[in-house]
Write a protein that binds this DNA or RNA. Sequence first.
DNA 1: GCCAACGTTGGC
DNA 2: GCCAACGTTGGC
Length: 158
Amino acid sequence: MAYWLFKTEPDAFSIDDLKNAPAQTSMWEGVRNYQARNFMRDGVKHGDLVMIYHSSCKQVGVAGIATVTREAYADPTQFDLSSDYYDAKANAENPRWFVVDVTYKAHLNKLVSLQAIKANNAITEIALKKGGRLSVMPVTEHDWQQIITMSEKNSGHF
DNA sequence: GCCAACGTTGGC
DNA sequence: GCCAACGTTGGC
């Protein structure tokens, strides 16, 4: 089993929205970056765990955990003319963009902020620390455990 | 295949 | 809203 981090803007789709979704499950649509796409298509497997990260908002950081419940399939929004994610260069025989389904698992006890992650020297690998703007990124087991541990502590420890 | 121009992401 | 860091595009 592997670990991942998916970014989302909570104004558009938050961990709460995932919790309140039908069957607490949602398609993770709209990834339009090739490196992120490759992770979605080739790397993310059924049963993998995903940190849901809130970006471009007041409280930037890891908000909760989800599980992958369906592996890569063509992102239907790439064919949808009315969607912001429509891609004229995509076609059904040769889809460009892929989604997975994720199912809500938990909120973290406390949101682990980007600031706290950056300040924790024990977290070494995660692309967040390197200013990466990838929307889908792998997380090592070590970094995963660090972030989970941080979520269990009271604020002010970092 | 280089690289400048342009667009996007995302923290602050 | 600013701007730095990337990613993409297109002329050559």
